[in-house]
Nucleic acid binder design. Structure first.
Lengths: 234, 234
DNA sequence: GCAAATTAATGATTTATTCAAG
DNA sequence: CTTGAATAAATCATTAATTTGC
């Protein structure tokens, strides 16, 4: 288990310890950086990933922030001293960016225009511009594009699968066995550049991983994932 | 082969007494001590190459006729013999495919789903299916994808440039060189990220430190500022 | 009507992968 | 083989919608 690099921390923003134990030490930020120290660790905030459907785990319980001290996103923390302990409570209005209609409109326009992963300069510019219509930070722009891209992809993949499923009928015998196809993929073109997921998407759903399931419907183990165009190229 | 993730959420990690993801903890000297790392590239040199399409591939698209064994472009051919040569004359009014609304819909769905350059097998299947909604041949499908891809790209490029130009106002200082990036950079980025597109530091809003980030590439005199790249298309 | 309770969206983080330098 | 950089996928968490009982 390797310690992964962690990026995506943003500047001027504490972003207090997220889901894991908040036993943090102090930060190295030049800032006050209110990395919250939470004396009461009551209730574990869920071990980070199980997700294995614990039947009756009351995982839903979304307790009010003021109780659990969700500081994750707080913009500011106020220190108070209680029985010799200094606790910090989130203060300040909203913590999460709430885009205005205008901002969304503009962002979507950019997206439609083809922008997907704006670089720093672009983000800066966009932020500056959108700032005229409401509070916004560069990271908001960054995240917006990330999320939007990912979710659009999801949506479309679903739609495509659906459509394909209707096209799926013939139960192609799948002549050409597998074909390595290398991994080079073809030009990934514009959208959905992801290297391989895309293949799985088109790989003809049968999949379900390995042979295990397969069954009748699609003996079609692997439809050549993305064998390039006819007559293939290199 | 590569069964990819699906996220296993390995168990020994959770509480991971091991102090969670550092965040604030100790060292973590990723590099510029200057606080957080940007989510957005500070200096990127790598196109993340799913789009390696450039290197080789002198190969031009091969007309589907080669693959599907279709004749050029005619719905029907009438054979005539002229001077010992059998020639075929297109017959029956239009020779050009006129996609039905349904066909277009389906093709677009596929496109949105990420399909760009279907292989022969896929084309066959698609053709077969779309054939239920009107006359169509494999080459039509093939050409449709080619054209659609190219035109979408064009459209979006234009739109993006337009949109960006409106956001361009700030008249960014950018005094230092660079301004000539334009043509070359843009063209290159457009479609294929050719080799390297550099990103610039997006100086975190409030705090300079820009210098710190440049470091390694700092010697680099060029520091190009506006790659302005319509990242992929929609 | 309306406020608690649910659910749907979506902003913000973390984890996994990938490619290519070293 | 290891590691930096960049990004996509997965996940977490909060806010807006929507539903529901009164």
């Amino acid at each position: 288990m390797r310690v992964h690099h962690f990026h995506v921390a943003y500047l001027d923003k504490p972003a207090a310890a997220s889901s894991s134990t908040a036993e943090t030490s102090s930060t190295a930020h030049p800032f006050p950086s209110s990395a919250a120290v939470f004396p009461f660790a009551l209730r574990c905030l869920r071990p980070l990933a199980p997700k294995l459907s614990l039947p009756e785990q009351p995982k839903k319980m979304v307790a009010p922030a003021d109780v659990l001290g969700r500081v994750r996103n707080a913009t500011k923390l106020l220190s108070c001293t209680v029985r010799n302990h200094t606790v910090q409570v989130p203060v300040g209005g909203t913590t999460r960016w709430n885009p205005s209609a205008e901002q969304i409109k503009m962002l979507e326009a950019l997206y439609r225009g083809g922008m997907r992963t704006p670089n720093a300069a672009q983000i800066e510019r966009i932020t500056e511009e959108l700032g005229k219509h409401g509070r916004i930070e560069g990271k908001n722009v960054f995240y917006w594009f990330q999320n939007h891209k990912a979710r659009e992809r999801q949506k479309q993949k679903r739609a495509a699968l659906l459509t394909l499923s209707t096209l799926d009928s013939p139960a192609l015998p799948q002549t050409t066995a597998t074909t390595k196809v290398t991994s080079k993929q073809q030009e990934a073109s514009d959208d959905v550049p992801s290297s391989k997921r895309r293949c799985t998407a088109w790989g003809n759903n049968g999949h379900g991983d390995a042979a295990a399931t397969t069954t009748s419907t699609g003996g079609n183990a692997t439809l050549e994932l993305f064998p390039l165009r006819p007559q293939g190229r290199a």
